[in-house]
């Protein structure tokens, strides 16, 4: 298994992802890639612009939920697609990083599904065999 990545898992009503990385910031960056797969064809999104993002949460699970919610709102409210997240820093209750992406261009971008929320269902960030892992269920 690679040191970071994600894969879709079967969930009856919604969409689930197993995500892993060798660090917590890496896990948050991978989670952004997984989320984008639900909403649009990520490979067509250029790294044309940068947006700084910062969220707060009382534990790693709440931080991850808010990090992904904020990423999704770039799309719903700002019609802006995220290609990737870099420079992710987790310090105390705060998570910050840089999103790379561009505004929606209907001629180039294929949109898939809206999401309603990032759920807490079964959400637990754990360290196993030297990797950080979690499973995220997204309500669609």
């Amino acid at each position: 298994m690679t040191t970071s990545g994600y894969r879709e898992i079967d969930h009856t009503a919604d969409v689930g992802f197993e995500i892993w990385a060798d660090s917590i910031p890496g896990l948050f960056a991978e989670a952004v890639l997984a989320l984008s797969e639900v909403c649009y064809e990520r490979t067509a999104v250029l790294w044309a612009e940068e947006r700084s993002m910062e969220v707060r949460g009382t534990d790693p699970e709440e931080q991850l939920v808010r990090w992904l919610q904020e990423t999704y709102l770039q799309l719903e409210s700002g019609l802006w697609l995220t290609a990737a997240a870099t420079n992710v820093v987790v310090k105390g209750e705060m998570v910050k990083g840089i999103l790379h992406g561009e505004p929606i261009d209907p001629a180039r971008h294929t949109l898939h599904s809206e999401i309603k929320a990032i759920t807490y269902h079964g959400l637990k960030i754990v360290r196993e065999h030297g990797l950080w892992r979690t499973t995220v269920v997204v309500d669609v």
């Binding site: 969930h11 009856t12 009503a13 919604d14 759920t119 807490y120 269902h121 079964g122 269920v137 309500d139």
Partner: peptide, 9 residues
């Protein structure tokens, strides 16, 4: 009924 999050659907 089917698998939801928290409550079942």
């Amino acid at each position: 009924i089917h698998w939801g999050y928290g409550f079942p659907i």
